[in-house]
């Protein structure tokens, strides 16, 4: 609990002593937001770490070879991730549900195991050294971008685009009858998601001196999916809350010590079982009532 105590008693010390943690929360929140966009449009895409890798490697390589300014590195990484997103998205988006999930897993594994580990320029299994990394100063960039991302997504979900995504998620057939071009809106969501993941990758690479190719595999995608689903994928804030909760979890539950994995697994199950729609979601914060919980008297059948 010392993390929380410190946060409230001495926020400045907290800030300086946990800068990297705060940055990581920010990165994870952006990633979770990237997952949010695809889930919001009804697609179970697990490609985020792949786009993240593209963003990260592009940014670091640009810096290493051409010494371009940071903004250019980030922009290039993000743009390339978006481009690959469009190319990958076109063929896979007609897949549904778990098939899309598996196809995107195929994509990230093929990318990280097949491409990154075999290209000399990526440093193969050793990764890259990023001498210009800024673990402390990076936090500002990360938090500002997170705020911008959340704001933009919030605005997008409230407009025509957001309504179209919701319609596609809820019922594709009915969405078509309302004049919504389903494949188009799915692709838009997929590309936005790729852009965000690419950006998160570039931003993350700026925080660490080593770019580790093993960071972009299936465990990462599982983690990001968990952020989004546990937080609640019906609301922009849900994934951010999920990322915040799960990233700080090991610190909050320090007493669990070595058993943190066991505890977090149990908490994960408990939350999803009692609250399948996620922590933040429609229906307020109410948990699903267990069977043994006393239920209110049911209303008499109305006569209307």
């Amino acid at each position: 609990m010392d993390l929380l105590t410190q946060l409230f008693t001495d926020p400045f010390a907290f800030w300086t002593s946990h800068t990297l943690l705060i940055s990581q929360i920010g990165i994870n929140s952006i990633l979770a937001s990237s997952m949010f966009v695809v889930l919001y449009s009804g697609q179970l895409s697990l490609a985020a770490p792949g786009f993240m890798a593209i963003g990260a490697y592009t940014a670091v390589l640009m810096d290493l070879y051409w010494h371009t300014p940071l903004a250019v590195d980030f922009a290039a990484g993000t743009a390339l991730a978006g481009l690959v997103g469009a190319i990958v998205g076109l063929p896979v988006l007609r897949l549904r549900g778990v098939f899309l999930a598996i196809a995107t897993i195929g994509f990230i594994e093929a990318l990280s195991l097949g491409v990154i580990l075999n290209l000399p320029i990526t440093g193969e299994g050793l990764g890259l050294k990023n001498i210009d990394a800024d673990p402390v100063g990076g936090v500002n960039i990360v938090l500002i971008s997170l705020a911008v991302v959340v704001y933009l997504l919030w605005r997008l979900t409230k407009g025509r685009l957001g309504y179209a995504w919701t319609a596609v998620r809820q019922d594709e057939l009915a969405a078509r009858s309302q004049g919504i071009d389903v494949p188009r809106y799915k692709l838009i969501a997929f590309v936005i998601s790729a852009l965000l993941a690419g950006y998160a990758g570039a931003a993350e690479s700026h925080l660490y001196f080593i770019l580790d190719p093993n960071e972009y595999g299936v465990p990462r995608t599982v983690q990001v999916l968990t952020f989004a689903v546990l937080g609640g994928s019906g609301n922009v804030l849900g994934p951010v809350v999920g990322a915040l909760f799960l990233t700080t979890f090991p610190f909050i539950f320090k007493q669990a010590g070595d058993y943190i994995g066991v505890v977090s697994g149990a908490v994960l199950i408990a939350i999803i079982v009692f609250r399948p729609q996620g922590i933040v979601g429609r229906g307020g914060f109410a948990f699903v009532r267990p069977r043994w919980w006393p239920r209110p008297q049911s209303r008499a059948p109305s006569t209307g």
């Binding site: 997008l156 407009g159 025509r160 685009l161 309504y163 919701t166 319609a167 309302q178 004049g179 919504i180």
Partner: peptide
């Protein structure tokens, strides 16, 4: 949602 096709793209 039904107004989609005649609504200007306000993104």
């Amino acid at each position: 949602v039904g107004m989609h096709s005649r609504r200007r793209d306000d993104t």
